[in-house]
C-alpha cells in the first residue's frame, strides 16, 4: 500500500486490454483494461454474477472448456498474448495456476495430489519430489498437520485442509501467477486465517489474483482491489482508497453494503 514502492516502478505481470468475453450471445465481460503487477495481491470484488470468476478463468484459459466461449481484446502475460492461436493453453496453466472455490482434492493420496502437477511433464527424481512436497505443504501451512500421513487419501482431510492442499498442489508447480476463486467461501474462520497468512507470505514470490465475496478479507490482505459490476470494471485502486474514499458512487454503495 502506501509503504510499498511507488506503483510506477513496478512491472506489470499481466496486461489486460479491452477484454470482452461472450458465452454464445451473452456478453459476460465488457471492455476490461487492467494491469496486474508482480508481487502483489489483487482482489476482485463485486456482487454475484458480475463476471469476477469469468475474468479469473480467462487468465488461464479455463473458459476454453465451454464450447460457446469467445473473447475479444488481449491478455498479455509478460508481453505475450495468451489468446494467440499458437499459444499452448496447457503450458499456460502451469505458469498461471488456479485454486477453486470448493476444495477439489483429487481422489489419490496427499502426496500424489501435491506431485500430480510436477510429474505430468516427465517424472523428476523421488528425492526432489519429497523435497518439493515438504516445501509446498509448508508454504501452504499444512505440513505439520499431515506430515505423518502423506500416503493416506486426500479425501479424508477436512475442508480447510483440502483447500490448503489445493494451494500446496498449485505451489508445487512453481507457477508465476496464482489465481484463487473465493478460496475461503466454505471455510471456518481459523482455516481462512491460515490461508490468508499463507497468501501474504507468498506474495514475495508470486503474483496473486484473488476473487472474494468477503470485503473484509479483501481489505485485510490485498494491495489493490478491483470492483466489478455487471461485467464491467468500475474502479481499481489501492485497498485503502477503495474502502475509504471510492471514486465511483457504485463502488461506494457496494463497499458500504447498500447493495450486493
Amino acid at each position: 500500500m502506501s509503504a510499498e514502492p511507488a506503483e510506477g516502478t513496478k512491472v506489470p505481470k499481466i496486461c489486460i486490454r479491452n477484454l470482452k468475453v461472450f458465452f454464445g450471445n451473452v456478453q459476460s465481460l465488457n471492455n476490461i483494461t487492467l494491469d496486474i503487477m508482480r508481487q502483489e495481491i489483487l482482489s476482485i470484488i463485486g456482487p454475484a454474477g458480475s463476471g469476477k470468476t469469468t475474468f479469473l478463468r480467462t487468465l488461464n484459459r479455463l473458459n476454453d472448456l465451454s464450447p460457446s466461449f469467445r473473447s475479444e481484446g488481449q491478455v498479455l502475460l509478460d508481453g505475450e498474448d495468451i489468446y494467440h492461436p499458437s499459444y499452448d493453453p496447457v503450458a499456460l496453466r502451469k505458469r498461471v495456476s488456479m485454486v477453486f472455490a470448493l476444495p477439489v482434492a483429487l481422489p489419490m493420496s496427499i502426496y500424489d495430489n501435491v506431485v500430480y502437477g510436477p510429474t505430468l511433464s516427465g517424472a523428476p527424481k523421488k528425492a526432489k519430489l519429497d523435497e518439493l512436497v515438504e516445501k509446498s505443504l509448508k508454504a501452504a501451512f499444512l505440513w505439520d498437520e499431515v506430515k505423518d500421513r502423506l500416503k493416506t487419501s486426500a479425501l479424508r482431510l477436512s475442508g480447510g485442509q483440502q483447500q490448503r492442499l489445493c494451494l500446496a498442489r498449485v505451489l508445487a508447480l512453481e507457477p508465476e501467477v496464482i489465481l484463487l476463486d473465493e478460496p475461503c467461501s466454505g471455510l471456518d474462520p481459523i482455516s481462512t486465517a491460515k490461508i490468508e497468512e499463507a497468501l501474504v507470505a507468498l506474495k514475495q514470490d508470486y503474483t496473486i489474483v484473488l476473487v472474494t465475496n468477503n470485503s473484509k478479507q479483501a481489505a485485510r490482505i490485498s494491495d489493490r482491489v478491483a470492483f466489478f459490476l455487471m461485467g464491467e470494471l468500475v474502479e481499481c485502486g489501492s485497498a485503502i482508497q477503495i474502502f475509504t474514499v471510492p471514486k465511483d458512487t457504485r463502488t461506494a454503495d457496494f463497499v458500504t453494503g447498500r447493495f450486493g
Binding site: 479455463l62 472448456l65 477453486f100 481422489p107 500430480y116 502437477g117 511433464s121
Partner: peptide, 26 residues
C-alpha cells in the same frame, strides 16, 4: 465430478492426462 477434471486441467494437465490419471481412477 466435473470439478476433478477442472482441477486437473488447471494444474496444466492435458485432456488425455486428466482422463488417464484422474477420471479413470475415480
Amino acid at each position: 465430478p466435473p470439478s476433478y477434471k477442472e482441477g486437473s486441467l488447471a494444474l496444466g494437465a492435458t485432456r488425455w492426462q486428466t482422463q488417464y490419471m484422474v477420471v479413470l481412477k475415480a
